[in-house]
């Protein structure tokens, strides 16, 4: 097990290199970092531009340039952002912390309720409860997150204020302007709507996964064997059904990290929540190469990381899978 993890981590390094190279290529072709620099700093001297090209590894030769960028990235010589010449790491760190908070809150809430809803639906397929849960899940996945975000803002903030004089939930940021220090209650209040938006998507997706997976399991022979032992229905379901039903759900979960992050990006943007999503959309809009590359590395690394986690939990749930 330990050796497997080591090997996977070792393997993820070349993957990371290849993917970041592709990202580097795509960004250089798609955003033209030198042009963005000149656009934002129209009076930059020739020497300044040459220095910018040098520290960012923007050589005409893509391969050479990539390795130059890589060297600077690994040694911690991160170039400053184009706009405002800010240091990148502090900004990235804050964005990561904020997104981690929002993302894990939404994921925990979403998976918890999603799995419960899926189980409840699968227990009586075709029944009223199943139809209700299934239809709600369908509505959930059919509503793009930016629409639910807007609707929530409209309802809980704009119109709530109109009707009741005060909005129920704030619609932007982590704290009110000018607030300093840590305040859990305030923070939760600010996180409520964005969390809800992302969680709805997760609940809808996972209740459907869980439902269909559990239905498959419920129809399987070993469930009949379990019933023929005369053990309680609850035990049949929990001991024999759940673990088997979770196996495919876990595999799908690995592929889903991307869509959760996608939902976060959209949601953060609408709620002006200062996380990875807002960071990305801002720096992408300005073609800010020095800000974008480290962001991409973080995302690629976390995709790989969650894949590994999913594989490990998959093997842990299913004895037929051997990690060697």
């Amino acid at each position: 097990m330990f050796r497997y993890i080591l090997r996977r981590v070792a393997w993820s390094i070349p993957t990371l290199l290849i993917v970041t190279f592709l990202v580097y290529l795509a960004l250089r072709i798609g955003t033209d970092p030198v042009a963005s620099y000149k656009r934002i700093n129209p009076r930059a001297s020739r020497a300044k531009i040459a220095e910018y090209i040098d520290v960012n590894g923007l050589d005409p030769n893509f391969v050479q340039g990539y390795f130059k960028w890589l060297k600077n990235f690994v040694t911690g010589e991160w170039p400053r952002s184009i706009k405002g010449r800010r240091e990148v790491w502090p900004a990235l760190k804050d964005a990561m912390a904020n997104t981690l908070r929002l993302g894990s809150a939404a994921t925990v809430v979403g998976i918890f309720f999603g799995l419960i809803a899926g189980v409840l639906a699968a227990l009586r397929p075709g029944g009223k409860r199943d139809v209700f849960i299934n239809t709600s899940a369908f509505v959930g996945i059919s509503i793009p997150p930016f629409i639910s975000a807007i609707m929530f803002q409209l309802l809980f903030a704009v119109y709530w204020q109109k009707w009741f004089g005060e909005s129920l939930f704030p619609t932007s940021g982590v704290y009110p302007a000018g607030h300093t220090g840590f305040d859990l209650f305030l923070m939760l209040k600010f996180m409520a709507l964005p969390t809800l938006v992302v969680a709805i998507q997760i609940i809808a997706t996972y209740s459907r996964y869980m439902r269909s997976s559990l239905l498959d399991v419920l129809n399987s022979d070993y469930m009949r064997t379990a019933r023929s032992k005369g053990i309680s229905e609850r035990r049949v379901l929990i001991k024999h059904g759940m673990r088997n039903a979770l196996i495919p759900v876990v595999t799908i979960a690995a592929l889903d990290v991307g869509s959760i992050v996608g939902g976060l990006i959209i949601t953060e943007n609408i709620f002006s929540y200062p996380g990875m999503g807002l960071y990305f959309l801002k720096s992408f809009g300005e073609g800010d190469f020095p800000l974008l590359m480290p962001w991409m590395v973080v995302i690629v690394a976390s995709v790989l990381f969650f894949n590994l986690i999913a594989d490990i939990s998959y093997a842990w749930l299913d004895p037929r899978i051997r990690l060697e």
Partner: peptide, 23 residues
């Protein structure tokens, strides 16, 4: 396809959009 599907959809979409537009 795994890799593409695992990556945040909107990010890939925006980046690929720019690349397509720049060629």
């Amino acid at each position: 396809t795994d890799l593409f599907l695992a990556f945040p959809f909107l990010v890939t979409l925006l980046v690929v959009r720019n690349v397509l537009g720049a060629l």
